[in-house]
Nucleic acid binder design. Structure first.
Lengths: 211, 211
DNA sequence: CTATAATCGGATAGGCGACTCCGGTTCCGA
DNA sequence: TCGGAACCGGAGTCGCCTATCCGATTATAG
């Protein structure tokens, strides 16, 4: 199901051996470069880092956006894979939180995941919907399991779960040199996800202060 | 204290009348354009929108980064102002949450605030520290008031509060066409900020599930 | 009203990044 | 081993964006 092989989109051509290797290395390097330099990194830098010519990059990915999209799809597929693994290994009660921690712990990855999802724009969404659906299914299972176990508020749904994950990535980027603050920020989100008797509409829990 | 006037940085020159007007209009337009087109918007577009020549932009702000910085400073000053106002009008118990809602409600502004704080990079931070400190003081007062009232967890500090605010902005960007999801996402963050008996270190509240 | 000095704004340079051409090289089948 | 075809890679093109120059315009003093 997960076509992790290097078959191009029209995938009927076997592709020569060196081409396969270059394509795989390009994806690897592009992910790393986009991760640390941001999506604005130049194609030339990626080519240099991967030790190939610029033409090779554009031969495999006709445009920079296509490369970005391929990297994003790879990441989404991998995340879905890890989500399924956690579902089995950790059990439905803890799997969702474990998945959150897993995503947020990948420090060099944080930026890329959020940036890609944010910067890529709308056009990419269409092409990533294939991989995106797989991830969304996994998230649905994770959320459902956690809700059945009673550890996550029942009014939560998948769309906001995704947004919360991305937003928390962004949040932690701003706390890079402050591990204590990062830990507390994560605790805030984690506790917010719990079934916290949150009044669904009321603005505040009517604290003891009366002034 | 708040130099909302259009005195340039070296501010000893009175500046001609039309120049003042153009400078003010530029700041206004630049904020709007950066807000909707992102910080990558071209200087030419800002000039056209403001009905001035490109040279005028660069005369007032020697570089694009300087313009971005000026816009950001303006925003920070305004936010600090609104925070102080809420502190007085709403009272310490609700002021922090009101401030959150106020920031998150400014739909066209959401993007800009987060993007500016994120994209601007490190160099800008130095120049914005002046306005940033004022905002941080306000946030300190808001947080302290809410904690004294017992409506916000006591382990929270200002750095993560800022990050949470920015991250939540980003979060809501991804839920633009889904108001219900956006409402629930905000509820998650809001409840997480409350004094929710969150175990400071433990991974989960030991839910009723035992499987 | 006139002089003067500052500002304005369109045209222009300079640089950077995405994307193509063509000779050289490497893989695969006979 | 050898031929051919596919692939590789660096030089080159094109377009966009930041930043500057100089004639025209406008605000202010006397």
């Amino acid at each position: 199901m997960t076509t992790d092989q290097t078959s191009p989109a029209t995938g009927v051509k076997p592709l020569r051996a060196d081409a396969r290797r270059n394509r795989a290395r390009l994806l690897e390097v592009a992910e790393a470069v986009f991760t640390e330099r941001g999506t604005g990194a130049s194609t030339e830098e990626i080519a240099r880092e991967a030790k190939v010519g610029i033409a090779t990059v554009f031969r495999h990915f006709p445009t920079k956006e296509a490369l970005l999209e391929a990297v994003l799809v790879r990441r989404l597929e991998r995340l879905a894979e890890e989500g399924r693994r956690l579902m089995v290994e950790t059990g439905p009660t803890y799997a969702l939180f474990a998945f959150f921690d897993l995503v947020l712990d990948q420090s060099p990855v944080k930026n890329a995941f959020a940036a890609a999802l944010a910067d890529a724009g709308v056009d990419v969404r269409a092409a990533t919907s294939e991989a995106g659906r797989a991830l969304r299914e996994v998230l649905t299972a994770l959320l459902d399991g956690a809700q059945r176990a009673g550890v996550v508020r029942r009014d939560l749904e998948v769309p906001e779960l995704t947004a919360i994950l991305v937003g928390t990535c962004r949040m932690l980027e701003h706390l890079d040199g402050h591990p204590e603050s990062a830990k507390r920020a994560r605790a805030v989100v984690r506790d917010g996800l719990k079934a916290c008797t949150g009044s669904p509409e009321g603005p505040l829990p009517q604290g003891p202060a009366h002034s």
